[in-house]
Amino acid sequence: MAKSAVQEFTKGLWAEIPPFRLVLGLCPVLAVTKGVETGIFMGIATTFVLVCSNVIVSLLRKVIPKGVRIACFIVVIATFVTVAELLMQAFAYSVFMKLGIFMPLIVVNCIILGRAEALASKKGVGVSFADGLGMGIGFTLSLFALASIREIIGNGTFYEIPVFGESFQPFTFMIEAPGAFVSLGLMLCIMNLLGKK
């Protein structure tokens, strides 16, 4: 049990790191990686929701009837998303403003529903917790990596601190929507190259 929980945790960090390996939940990935700050906060919020919903779904897996399981998962997930949203509004409003609509949209993030359906509804609490935490941290790292690339090239800053001299002309394309696709594509490409034996 202990060993498999560790495995569940570590697989989220590399072997099945979302979104690069799973290629799930791309919508927020593309949208919030304009800056490192929003990327990290989105990752933390998603991790919070993922861990909490995994634990609750796992605890209630014997109570939830098969026929309405998806509806029940969504209620659990939506509750935690709202909790995260309210807390972020109360304590980190400036970030909440930048994340905007993508906070409530965590409800329909397929990583979270996917983990609830594929793992948490079948396995014990410990494993589900480890899986949620691993996947969440993996997701946060991916967002961080992508956001770093985009913010440094597209805006010349890292966490809103300038990294280049005055003469740097930012490549604004990278922080717009098309730049998100291009950089995500390149990242997937690199990940595939690294994965190839």
Partner: peptide
């Protein structure tokens, strides 16, 4: 009944949290 209980518990919890954070927000 299951869905009803799920929604009721969720709604209740969120209402409490909302009233606690309202002024701050």
């Amino acid at each position: 009944v299951v869905i009803l209980i799920f929604s009721a518990v969720s709604g209740g919890l969120l209402t409490i949290l909302h009233s606690k954070t309202e002024a701050r927000i």
